[in-house]
Design a protein around this nucleic acid. Structure first.
Lengths: 220, 220
DNA sequence: GTCTATAGATGGATAGAC
DNA sequence: GTCTATCCATCTATAGAC
């Protein structure tokens, strides 16, 4: 079964290494998403993962590096989904998709992640928290790497050439705020306020609500 | 000049106490707003304030209590401004203000604080950060004390009785996201993305932009 | 690669002199 | 009320045995 020449002895090494590293990765993502970066210690992570204390430093170098790697991986996954959807929307519309389709490419991936039946629900919470609480390294990357957002800004500028560019940028800012509001804390608060009328479980309905609201905000 | 019978000796006590406490309060608010709750130590605060290390515990009991008191005070100030504006809007409109005036009462106070010429700019950043990074005590208060938000939800429900209530709650959720997006980090990021086209200094213009966007989102 | 023990640093809180 | 010195808990990171 093994691809190596030595199936005996310590042949479980690559699998065990991958397994331990993945256990740490998942436990760290989960705990940080739930309790925040600074509130989770390496001891918490290794205890949750059921591995020994030293494994974080062995596999990731440091606590900071671990969290940066989770952030990098999840950001890349989310941005690729968004970029692919934007590209498809562009293909469907002769290179000039309308506002609603651009916003769909921006909203749909994080909302799919938000679905309670989706394993990635916790990853989205992680990303939202890391964005505002992350280390200086994460913040610096976020601040400088605007290339991903630029594709959406350019698409919106092309869709609304009649608007002053700064108006388009501000509206993009507003819709990003709508997305970032979907944290556990704010959703719980909304649930209390509405006395249970708002059910976050219906992510398809939420996507339509967000699109209706944002598209209306853009159509002036 | 003193109201006490003993102007000599340690008569500076009340003023000195107030002065030191205020120095700590201001330094803590500023540092937390800039660097986050967990990233600021009591030593940082007392160094910034130019007072001795023990004064935080003497005047506030603990670091947690200090931050909770700042949060409580600023939240109260902001909510009172909002409640007053909502009340005035209600008076102007026979108890049933239109959506745009309700949203103005929600947006205008934090945007006034955001003005670079306003001392309260740092207080607003503090509040936005405390909301997402705060202690369990702060989060619990936020989660349970929805009475302030409820006034705005009720006003919106009255202004749009044609809509299903849950739709109104979701839209309120969206506009709150728009407000919370006005953090230093996100504003800086927007500034980079727009290559300087977005100037946050023009808070009056920003208020109009936010109102236009949100009102359009509500009018369907 | 795993695990224990511990180094090394930092931070919150407090005792006790003034 | 102020301030210094210090206690004690906690955390990250690592050395070294297995």
């Amino acid at each position: 079964m093994s691809l190596t020449d030595d199936p005996g002895a310590e042949s479980q090494t690559p699998e065990a290494e991958a397994a331990t590293k993945q256990l740490v990765f998942n436990a760290a993502e989960r705990l940080f998403a739930l309790h925040g970066f600074q509130n989770v210690s390496v001891r918490d992570i290794t205890a949750e993962a059921g591995v020994n204390l030293a494994s974080v430093n062995y596999h990731f170098g440091s606590k900071d590096s671990l969290l940066f790697e989770i952030f990098r991986r999840r950001t890349q996954e989310l941005n690729r989904e968004r970029a692919r959807m934007l590209h498809e929307a562009s293909d469907r519309n002769a290179g000039k998709p309308p506002v609603r389709e651009i916003l769909t490419a921006l909203f749909a991936p994080p909302l799919r992640w938000l679905d309670p039946s989706n394993d990635r629900r916790i990853s989205l919470q992680f990303l939202i928290r890391a964005r505002s609480e992350g280390t200086a390294e994460i913040r610096e990357v976020l601040g400088r790497d605007v290339s991903h957002l630029k594709r959406f800004a350019d698409a919106l500028l092309a869709a609304r050439p009649d608007l002053p560019p700064e108006e388009v940028y501000w509206r993009l800012h507003f819709v990003l705020g709508m997305i970032h509001q979907n944290r556990f804390m704010e959703l719980d608060r909304l649930h209390v306020l509405s006395e249970g009328a708002t059910r976050e479980g219906e992510v398809d309905a939420l996507l339509e609500r967000m699109l209706d609201f944002a598209e209306a905000g853009f159509s002036r």
